[in-house]
Nucleic acid binder design. Structure first.
Lengths: 130, 130
DNA sequence: GCTAAATCGGACTCTTTCAGTCCTACTTTG
DNA sequence: CAAAGTAGGACTGAAAGAGTCCGATTTAGC
């Protein structure tokens, strides 16, 4: 469907939220304000933290905050942090092995297409969302 | 996953195949040569025909052929003909109604992003696949 | 030190979408 | 009229996605 997953959508919303604040923010607050499932959002923020674009402080008065400047966080990076695969077709994937490889006649062009899409997603950052 | 569906992938392969020939080609031939399920490909070609980018002739010696020049058939058009929805998020969709609309803070930027992606997909045509 | 408010993280369920199959009907050439 | 095609509905199976549940760990503040 060529659609961003809800995980990425929620991730972008959360990052946008964090970018507007300069103190740590709880998952609860973002989830309530943005009408997103708490449990789901909690997992997403954990993944974003693993990537290193945000940090967390645990315990009471804990929460999440940005580690990087908004303009350093591209949509591509968010996608990579939150999704397993992000190639446009099976044959442009590195991890999967294309079942029709021997007879595949569109591998080259698809690679080019993927590069162009990535370029677009790379150019958009959290800074543009604020 | 931001991935083109198999329907679109097979559709592009079939169109590329047709673009290389100047006579009608049967579904069977394309399916065999490209290792694609016959039944599935048959449905895809029907949809492409409905859109008007290819024509069919029924009966013995029948098959499909291009109605338009390869450079007139963009990837966007193929996607539109073969998929229900193609918006990048729920909130940029026209047919769906975003459940979180009241609190959605990324609608504007997502629309811009979608336009840019569409621009890329619009610029690539079957002519580039040959 | 205890308690409450947080993050951490595994395991699970439910739903929807996608890919693919099966079967029957209609069309047309030879 | 038979064989080779397209036309198309209905169904199945598998996989991914979205969301839930529950328990563990950490830590500020009383």
């Amino acid at each position: 469907m060529l659609r961003l997953s809800k995980r990425v959508e929620y991730g972008l919303i959360a990052l946008q939220y964090l970018a507007k604040r300069d103190v740590v923010v709880t998952v609860r607050e973002i989830a309530d304000e943005s009408a997103i499932s708490y449990d789901l959002l909690a997992k997403i923020l954990q993944d974003l933290k693993r990537d290193g674009m945000i940090y967390s402080s645990q315990g009471v008065r804990g929460g999440y905050g940005l580690m990087l400047a908004p303009q350093q966080i591209s949509v591509t990076r968010v996608i990579d942090a939150l999704e397993e695969e992000s190639s446009i077709t099976e044959c442009t994937s590195e991890s999967e092995c294309c079942t029709r490889e021997a007879v595949c006649t569109i591998k080259g062009p698809m690679h080019k297409l993927q590069e162009q899409v990535e370029q677009v997603l790379n150019a958009v950052t959290i800074a543009q969302l604020i």
